[in-house]
Design a protein around this nucleic acid. Structure first.
Lengths: 394, 394
DNA sequence: CCATATCGTTTATCCATTGAATAAAGCGAG
DNA sequence: CTCGCTTTATTCAATGGATAAACGATATGG
C-alpha cells in the first residue's frame, strides 16, 4: 500500500528536513534554518521544539549577532544515543561503538580461532554484549546494530550465501534481534565499506563512488547520488567473478578466468608461497610479511605485487568503462599494499580505459584502513534509527 | 533547494496517486479508487473532478451494480494527447507517434543515405514534422518528443559522445526544442529499448531486468524496481567494452579484448565476409542475408552464429554474476538471429554462472522487434509530460 | 539615545484531508 | 409495488499543519 499525502506526512517531511539541516550545518540558528530550507520561521520554531523534546537537538546558547537580536544556536545532540558497528571478517570480528555522528568511542577486535558456526556466533554475541556494557549513559541508549558480512544478504538481513564463512541461509538479523531486542541491519561487507568511506573516509563529500574491497576475494559496491546502489545485497555480491580471461583458470565458482583469481589477496598468496621469504609464526600476517619484504627491496615480491596490481587494473578498467565513476576507492586488507600496487594499477587503467571516461576518474585508497566496514555498518544502524525516529509517532 | 512539505505537495502526491490508479486499473469507479488507495471518498471525488477538467480522465457511464447504486466508471483519456518516439539509428531513423498509453498510431522509417551531421539532423526534423502533421486532433496535442541515441547522453539531453554517429557534444535536446517548442527527452538507445521492453514487450510486469542491445556495438541498460537505473546516460554506455580477454584483440576504444569485438553484429559481419554466401545489392541487409543462409542450412554460417552466441554468453555471464538479474532481454538487430544464437548463449551461461545465481534467471529476446527503442523513447516523453502535469499549477 | 536590523514567538488565516452526514441510485424480498 | 438495505458520490464541519504578518526582545552603530 502506498503512502498517501496528508498533514502528518507533511510534518514528517519537514521535521526531517529541519533535523538534517541541523545535523549538517551544526551549529545553526532557527533563523538560518528557515533561510536555508525555505520553511516559515514559525514552522521551524515548532519543529525545533519537538526535536529538543526528542533529545535529538539542544540549544548551546547565544551566537554572534549580525546587527540585531542574537540568535540561539542549536546543536545536534550526537551523544543522545549510540550505535554498534560490526565487521564480521573471515577470521576476526571488529566491533565499534559510535555516537550518532558515527564517531568511534569504543572498539574491540576479536580474532577467531574456531571458525565453526556456533563459535563464531557466540563470539559475535559476546562482542555485542561488551559494547552494550561499555556504552556511556544516554537518553536513548543503543539505537541499533549494523553488521557487514562477506557474502550475499537479502533485505530482511538473511545471509543467503557467504562462501568464505561457509554460511548459507542464516537469518542473522533475527538471531541478533531475538537476543538483544535491538534493530539490526545486515549488509554486504563491501556495501558497508563503501558507506564508511563515503561518510568518513576517502569518499567524503563525493556523490558517487565505487568501492572495491580487495581481501581474500573481491567485492564491490557503489554509491550513486549519495545512496547505496541496490539494497542490502545489491549488485555488489560478486564482481570478483567478472571474467577477464574467457579461457583462463578454473574458478571454484564453476567459471573460468574470474578476476579474483588474478587480482585478490588469495591470488597473491598462492603465488607468493613459492617465493623465498622468511616466514613468521603467525599465519595471519602473511600479507604484512610480504609487504615488509617488498619494503626491504625483495625484487621477486615487488614483481609479484606489480603483476597483481596490473590485473587489478584490468578489472578496474571494466568498472571504469562500464560505470564511468568519478572515484574508485580500493579498500580492505590488500589496500595496505598501496605503495606497491598503486603504480601498476594506474598504468593499466590509464592505458586501457575509454578516452571519453578517463578525464574525471580518481583512484584512491581507503583512508579508514580496516575500519571502513565497521564504521559503515554502524552508520546503517544510525540512519535506520533516524528514519524510524523522524516519524512523529507521538 | 529541497522541496518542503505543504498542502500543495500533499495534493500533488494524492492527485498523482489517483491518476496512476486510474491509468493502471482503468475502468474504475471513485469508490474503488478510494478503497484501493486508502484516500477518503471526498478527496477522491475532488481530485477526479480536477483530472476531468484537465482532460486526463473521463466518465464512461454507469458500471455494474454490486447491490447498490451503480458506480460511474472512469477511464484514462489516452487520446487526450500524443507523443513522438524516435530511434535514431546509425543508418536509419524510426519515428513513431503514440497515444498517452504508448500505443503506436503512426510510424515512419527513414533510411539514411547521407550520414553527414546536417543531413541526419534535417532528416530528423523532417520526420518529426511529418508526425506532427499526421497527429489526430486532441485537447493537448503533441505533449513531447523522446529520442534514443546510440551514445552517451547527459541529463540535459546533450549527446556527449556517439562514436557510431561521429557526434560529440551535440546539444540535441536544445536543437529540437528550438525548432518545435516541445519538451524533448534524449536518452541512450539501450535505456530507451529497456524501457520499451519493460512497458510493452518481454519485460512487461517485471520489476527488474537487464536489456542488452546487440547491434553494431553492444549497449546495456537496467530497470531496477521499475525505474531505469542511472539516469539518461547512466551506467549503460559501454558495457560492450567489458574486457573478456585481457590479452585479446585491440579495440578502437584503446583497450584490448573488449566484449563487443567478439560478440556484436560488427564482429559477426567481419568474420562472415570470408564465407561464401551469395551477396545481395542492398548493403543494409547483410545480417538478414546470413540469417537466411543459416536457415537454408549453410553450416559455416551456423557455426559462426554459434561462436558469436558463445561469446555473447560469456559477457552475459559477467552480467549475471555481477548484477544477479531475474531477466535479461536481448534486443536490437542481432536479436533477429535468435534461432541460431539462443542455444549457445544458454549453454555458456548455464555452465559458467555462479550456482547461486542460476536459479531465477531468464534470458529472453526482444518481443517488440526493432521498435523497442522508439516506443521506449516515446514513453519517456509521456512520463515527462505527466510528471509536469501532475503539479497543480492552476 | 535613537534608528534600524535580526531573531524567535504568537496570532490569524489558509487549505487539503478526513469522517460523518446526506443525497442519489439500485437491488431484492415479500 | 413498496419497503428496507446497499452502494456510490457529494457536501460540510472539524482537524492539523504551513504561512504571512505582527510583535516583543535584543543587538548594532552613529
Amino acid at each position: 500500500m502506498q503512502t498517501t499525502g496528508n498533514q502528518y506526512l507533511v510534518k514528517k517531511i519537514n521535521k526531517s528536513i529541519v533535523f538534517d539541516t541541523i545535523r549538517r550545518k551544526n551549529p545553526i540558528s532557527r533563523a538560518q534554518i528557515s533561510e536555508s530550507t525555505n520553511l516559515n520561521k514559525g514552522t521551524v520554531s515548532s519543529l525545533v521544539k519537538e526535536l529538543i523534546d526528542d533529545d535529538l537537538v539542544y540549544e548551546i546558547g547565544p551566537g554572534q549577532s549580525s546587527g540585531g537580536r542574537r540568535p540561539v544556536m542549536l546543536l545536534f545532540n550526537h551523544v543522545s544515543g549510540y550505535a554498534i558497528g560490526i565487521d564480521l571478517g573471515v577470521n576476526y570480528i571488529l566491533t565499534v561503538l559510535t555516537d550518532l555522528e558515527g564517531n568511534s568511542v569504543e572498539e574491540e577486535r576479536t580474532p577467531l580461532q574456531n571458525l565453526s558456526f556456533d563459535s563464531v556466533i557466540s563470539a559475535l554475541f559476546q562482542s555485542i554484549r561488551a559494547m552494550i556494557d561499555r556504552a556511556p549513559d544516554s537518553p536513548r541508549g543503543i539505537v541499533g546494530i549494523g553488521i557487514g558480512v562477506p557474502g550475499i544478504v537479502d533485505e530482511k538481513g538473511t545471509v543467503l550465501f557467504a562462501p568464505n564463512l561457509g554460511w548459507k541461509n542464516v537469518n542473522l538479523s533475527r538471531m541478533i534481534t531475538d537476543e538483544f531486542h535491538l534493530p539490526v541491519i545486515v549488509h554486504n561487507e563491501a556495501n558497508a565499506g563503501a558507506k564508511g568511506e563515503h561518510l568518513f573516509g576517502s569518499g567524503k563529500g563525493r556523490e558517487n563512488l565505487v568501492y572495491v574491497s580487495v581481501g581474500i576475494g573481491i567485492g564491490t559496491s557503489m554509491i550513486i547520488n549519495n545512496a547505496l546502489y541496490g539494497g542490502a545485497s545489491g549488485f555488489s555480491g560478486e564482481m570478483g567473478h567478472f571474467i577477464i580471461e574467457s579461457h583462463g583458470k578454473k574458478c571454484r565458482c564453476g567459471n573460468r578466468g574470474c578476476w579474483e583469481l588474478y587480482a585478490s589477496e588469495r591470488a597473491f598468496l598462492e603465488q607468493a608461497k613459492s617465493l623465498s621469504v622468511p616466514s613468521t609464526d603467525s599465519a595471519d600476517l602473511d600479507l604484512d610479511r610480504f609487504i615488509q619484504a617488498a619494503n626491504e627491496g625483495n625484487s621477486e615480491v615487488i614483481q609479484l605485487f606489480n603483476q597483481i596490481g596490473e590485473y587489478l587494473g584490468i578489472g578496474l578498467t571494466n568498472i571504469v568503462n562500464t560505470l564511468n565513476p568519478e572515484l574508485i576507492i580500493i579498500g580492505n586488507r590488500f589496500a595496505k599494499a598501496e605503495k606497491w600496487i598503486r603504480n601498476p594499477i594506474h598504468r593499466v587503467v590509464e592505458s586501457r580505459s575509454l578516452p571519453y571516461h578517463r578525464q574525471p576518474l580518481k583512484i584512491a585508497f581507503s583512508s579508514l584502513g580496516t575500519h571502513s566496514c565497521a564504521l559503515g555498518a554502524s552508520s546503517f544502524a544510525i540512519s535506520n534509527f533516524f528514519s524510524d525516529m523522524k516519524v512523529p509517532v507521538g
